[in-house]
Design a protein around this nucleic acid. Structure first.
Length: 445
DNA sequence: GGGAATGATTAGCT
DNA sequence: AGCTAATCATTCCC
């Protein structure tokens, strides 16, 4: 500051102290001093300075004329360099404060969300399978897809608006920026403006515009959320599976009671069988139908475990149902085994039962489960078949002992440590050992 | 209308 | 990544 004043004083006796040069503040006209003619030159310089300082306050035409006049002034080069020097000194304090601000977390959140919702990202291919990833709405395929297309139409509407607006903003921003830059560059011939300053100004402009963009993004997000809650939060709007589907799932569940964890393939198969036949959309790597199945099994397991007593009847029902099939299959298998060599990995050769074709019983289990569960798992599957058979046998009475007496029977599907086993320990469901009739004696906790 | 049933979602765990 | 357990939200059924 002092220095600035000193320089100016030396130059023309005009005291600038306390005034920001770049601020473009108008100074009181210097001729307020007594116009002692002794210094025409001083007066002259004062005038020039004053003109420079107030150049931004004038109308364009006026300024243009003045500028021209200034540029032609003989003292201009000297004055200009001095001003540049001053500027350099004062400029130091200005810059350095805010260079690169870190990305705004809120903005990032908005961006992420827009991307996730498919608003800001690349256009999703019109392919039939593509767009629907987000929409995991339950329900029948038909109204599902109707809701879908409706949703997608609305979403793309939003998307379009968003993009045109964004483009508009960007364009406006660019226009404004170049305009300001031109202006500043133009002025920099008259008053000292460093490129850095121009850059700074551009940054300020960009920041302003991006805050406007943020508003756009925010309202877009809001719109999407509303849309979502209207349509897709039909995610929560559940719909019961068809009776048939539940039946199929229950069949699988109770016939695999000792290990009701369908493999991925089994899930897919089940989903297919349950006629949830919308296009296969991959979520993560799980088809949404598998997800339905997974949900179902998750719920089923937990609810069964929580209150086995309540499900007893159902268990019996399905066990009987499937066991009939099983029995047939076994019968056929026995016949076959006399001619064909057994093909299954004989895990444990459980008792007198040879179940070479057990895999056919429930949706070709060999393929479904054998692959991923292997070893012990195969044992578990065989086990489950045996469970079913035992159950039905005990119910139809008469054959209790064929299998019943075998104490090694308790399932060993996973292990003993608190997993599914504890709760399902079959004695409750299948209870041949408890003697006939006591099947239902098992009450809740 | 109200409770039971049930599909979906979530946090937390492994 | 898949599971359990708790919970939410809707539908079913009396």
């Amino acid at each position: 500051m002092d220095e600035q004043a000193r320089i100016l004083q030396a130059l023309g006796g005009v005291n600038l102290a306390g005034h920001s040069v770049q601020g473009g503040m108008a100074l009181p006209p210097p001729h307020g001093h007594d116009g002692t003619d002794g210094d025409g030159r001083k007066q002259d310089i004062g005038d020039i300075l004053h003109q420079i300082m107030t150049i931004t306050d004038q109308s364009l035409d006026e300024a243009q004329a003045k500028k021209h006049g200034l540029n032609c002034h003989r003292m201009k080069p000297a004055l200009f360099s001095v001003l540049c020097e001053i500027k350099e000194k004062t400029g130091l304090s200005i810059r350095g404060a805010q260079e690169e601000d870190p990305p705004d977390p809120q903005l990032m959140r908005l961006d992420n969300m827009l991307l996730a919702e498919g608003v800001s990202g690349p256009e999703k291919g019109g392919g039939s399978a593509a767009a629907a990833a987000a929409a995991a709405a339950a329900g029948s395929p038909t109204d599902n897809s109707i809701e879908h297309s409706d949703y997608r139409a609305k979403l793309s509407q939003i998307r379009q608006i968003y993009h045109t607006e964004l483009e508009k903003y960007e364009q406006a921003c660019n226009e404004f920026t170049t305009h300001v830059m031109n202006l500043l560059r133009e002025q920099s011939r008259t008053r000292p403006i460093s490129p850095k300053e121009i850059e700074r100004m551009v940054n300020i402009i960009h920041r302003k515009f991006s805050s406007i963009q943020m508003q756009l993004k925010q309202s877009t997000c809001e719109a999407v959320m509303i849309l979502r809650s209207r349509f897709l939060d039909a995610r929560r709007k559940r719909r019961n599976f068809s009776k048939q589907a539940t039946e199929i799932l229950n069949e699988y569940f109770y016939s695999h009671l000792s290990n009701p964890y369908p493999s991925e393939e089994a899930k897919e198969e089940l989903a297919k069988k349950c006629s949830i036949t919308v296009s296969q959309v991959r979520q993560h790597h799980l088809s949404i139908h598998q997800k339905y199945v997974s949900n179902w099994f998750g719920n089923k397991r937990i609810r069964y475990k929580k209150n086995i007593g309540k499900f007893q009847e159902e268990a019996n029902l399905y066990a009987a149902k499937t066991a009939v099939t099983a029995a047939h299959a076994v019968a056929a298998a026995v016949q076959n085994s006399q001619t064909n060599s057994p093909t299954t990995p004989n895990s444990g050769s459980s008792g007198s039962f040879n179940l070479p074709n057990s895999g056919d019983l429930f949706m070709s289990m060999q393929n479904l489960n054998g692959d991923s569960y292997q070893g012990a798992q195969v044992g578990a599957n065989v086990q489950s078949q045996v469970d079913t058979l035992r159950h039905v046998i005990s119910q139809t009475a008469g054959y209790n002992d064929v299998l019943g007496g075998n104490p090694m029977y308790s399932p060993h599907g996973l292990n003993g440590n608190g997993g599914w086993q504890d709760a399902t320990t079959p004695s409750s469901v299948i209870s041949p050992t408890e003697g006939p009739g006591s099947v239902h004696s098992d009450t809740s906790n």
